[in-house]
Amino acid sequence: MTDSLIELKNLRCERDERVLFEGLDLQVNAGDIVQIEGPNGCGKTTLLRVLTTSSVDYEGELYWSGKALNISKLDYLNQLLYVGHLSGIKKALTPRENLNWFSGINQGHKRCSIEVALEEVGLFGFEDVPCHHLSAGQLRRVALARLFLTPARVWILDEPFTAIDKQGVANLERLMTEHAAGGGCVILTTHQDMTIQSLRKINLQSYRGVAA
């Protein structure tokens, strides 16, 4: 499969007058699982923010399925799912209410029921428990349950394994592999070692700005 989903051309990001990376070319195809690597502060999160369109402070070109991103933005956003450091989970609401909101503001329909998704992340029986009763790891799982619900093709995950146990990590890896095999793609950052065979690694360190 060489179906190009996301393509970056000559991307350059600057933060506080410091070049984080430049000359970054990256093509993410359907079926790819791409891990962005690099030490802290090398611009991993910044890159993800550019990819999720929350940041416009970049130079270079972005393409979504062959079209410039500013033309195909709505379609791209329709196909995008992002789980970041901050989950967007409201503590006052139950997992069910939270997940309903996420699917409501996104594609509006779900691939499976919320019960099934929560069961998949090991939160069976917690559907209607207010989130402030849940632990940090459980909150993380609520956010990750979105992966089961979403019909989006592009998953962008910032440190998805934080506060997740071994079994959970294995489940997530399996889910990502399935998603990739089904024609989707995953872009993620993590400090954990992953066991996925087809993992592509991009080290941002090698795109560090040459001192001007």
């Binding site: 329709n78 509006g108 024609g183």
Partner: peptide, 21 residues
């Protein structure tokens, strides 16, 4: 299913997003 075209998903209606929030 990994056919070479990005399949457009049904664009959700504005009201569904409005009501969700």
């Amino acid at each position: 299913e990994g056919s070479l075209q990005a399949q457009p998903l049904i664009t959700p209606s504005i009201w569904s997003g409005f009501w969700a929030t």
